[in-house]
Design a protein around this nucleic acid. Structure first.
Length: 200
DNA sequence: GAATCGATGGTCT
DNA sequence: GACCATCGATTCT
């Protein structure tokens, strides 16, 4: 039996969770069928002091899940047409989450293609908007518990990656500045063909 | 390959 | 009213 990532996994420092999510399998269940991929890229967003975080202006209706208990989903709409999926981390009350930026397709590739169109494997789930489209993740899943037994979206243990296989670089879409703005909080599996873009 | 640009709508100062 | 934690098509070198 494959081990699922539980509440305790997410109830930790956000950078640790982001790092350890690499190699884990993100599973979406639709009509009893599994659609899944290994995480190859993820970004950490930590606290109200993080000037790149949606929580930088304090609690709002949109970012409410970030303030809630860890192990839940935070899904939001970006640029009016794409969804992005985060896993809420750390302790309740502290707004923190890990953005899933890219997967390596593993299960239900046909379903992914139905949702994404006839694109190459490397374009199927290589981006936060793309992976949500491939797995059928929409705002309907905003706030859902990823640790419930009956969850339709959850993580499983899969591959364990050594530190040498991982690079930490500045986050995407976060420009200049000091401190958290330029912090290397984007974690990538070195050399993976499924990254949203080349690291660095 | 790299740079640029439009689509499209929710969210927040 | 400005700004996006994006993507895909188009237009260059």
């Amino acid at each position: 039996m494959v081990l699922r990532l539980d509440r305790a996994f997410f109830t930790r420092d956000t950078l640790t969770v982001a790092r350890e999510l690499l190699g884990a399998r993100l599973v979406r269940v639709v009509d009893g069928r599994r659609i899944a991929g290994r995480v190859v890229e993820a970004e950490a967003y930590v606290g109200e002091g993080d000037q790149a975080s949606h929580a930088r202006f304090g609690p709002t209706a949109r970012n409410a899940p970030m303030y809630g208990p860890p192990g839940h989903a935070y899904v939001y709409l970006i640029y009016g047409m794409y969804n992005c999926l985060n896993a809420v981390t750390d302790t309740e009350g502290l707004p923190a989450a890990v953005l899933l930026r890219a997967l390596e397709p593993v299960e239900g590739v046909k379903s992914m293609r139905d949702a994404r169109g006839e694109v190459s494997d490397t374009l199927l789930t290589s981006g936060p908007g793309r992976l949500c489209q491939a797995l059928g993740v929409t705002r309907a899943l905003d706030g859902v518990d990823l640790c419930r037994r009956e969850a339709e979206l959850f993580f499983e243990e899969d591959v364990t990656l050594p530190d040498e296989a991982i690079v930490a670089v500045p986050r995407v879409g976060v420009t200049g500045g000091a401190g958290a703005r330029s912090a290397p909080w984007r974690f990538c599996v070195k050399g993976s063909p499924h990254l949203s873009r080349a690291p660095g």
